[in-house]
């Protein structure tokens, strides 16, 4: 069941109240942007995809079911849009050492430079690993770990079965474990700070 305030904003937005829709955007922009960023691995493209997701949501507000969570609904729109974008891309396998856009530095908080650097490094490595996964696997992983959704909820968002999600998650983790192992293997030439940190 959707939050009553959220539902009120949705109703007002359907009636043409743009301020109400702006409230929805402010409330869910971080969630949508993070999802787009984790799926697309590119800041400017994630921003564009997030905008597109909100515009699509606005144009389909009348189709929103008040019994469902609005966050789940908007994330479903965003993830489907990002998967479409990923499928249109050619299969590019990004090296674990490939730098990620500087615009992705954590703009959210004001931590110490060292913390920022560490966090950026972690973010960069995680993203590099994610980029190696197929779009469907990547989406399942992001929804599970960043949004803490259950198998059933992820299945609902991606309009598939619970067993399919389970299988995608298992396979994705397996692949990530192999990648982590490879990057840390002796003679590979890559340091793995994640393993060195004892994570």
């Amino acid at each position: 069941m959707s939050d009553p305030i959220i539902y009120q904003w949705v109703t007002a937005a359907i009636a043409g109240d743009q301020d109400a829709f702006a409230e929805l955007v402010y409330t869910f922009q971080d969630a949508v942007f993070n999802l787009c960023y984790r799926l697309l691995g590119d800041g400017p493209e994630a921003e564009d995809a997030a905008q597109e997701a909100f515009l699509r949501a606005y144009n389909n507000l009348t189709r929103y079911d008040g019994e469902r969570s609005f966050k789940t609904w908007i994330l479903s729109i965003a993830s489907n849009h990002c998967i479409d974008r990923l499928r249109k891309r050619r299969a590019i396998y990004v090296s674990i050492d490939e730098p990620i856009s500087a615009t992705l530095s954590l703009a959210s908080t004001d931590p110490q430079p060292e913390q920022v650097a560490l966090s950026n490094e972690r973010s960069r490595r995680i993203q590099a690993l994610l980029n190696e996964l197929a779009p469907d696997y990547r989406t399942a992983v992001v929804l599970r770990y960043w949004y803490d959704y259950s198998y059933i909820e992820i299945a609902e968002i991606l309009e598939t079965t619970e067993s399919a999600i389970k299988s995608r998650l298992f396979r994705a983790r397996q692949m990530l474990a192999e990648k982590l192992g490879d990057s840390a293997a002796p003679g590979h030439g890559l340091r793995n700070p994640l393993l060195e940190e004892g994570i």
Binding site: Q29, D30, N34, A46, E47, Q51, L55, S108
Partner: peptide, 18 residues
Amino acid sequence: LLRTAPYERAPRRLALTI
């Protein structure tokens, strides 16, 4: 690693652009 992954926040201009 995934559980401790940072959450990327939207750029400030995003809502205005939308």
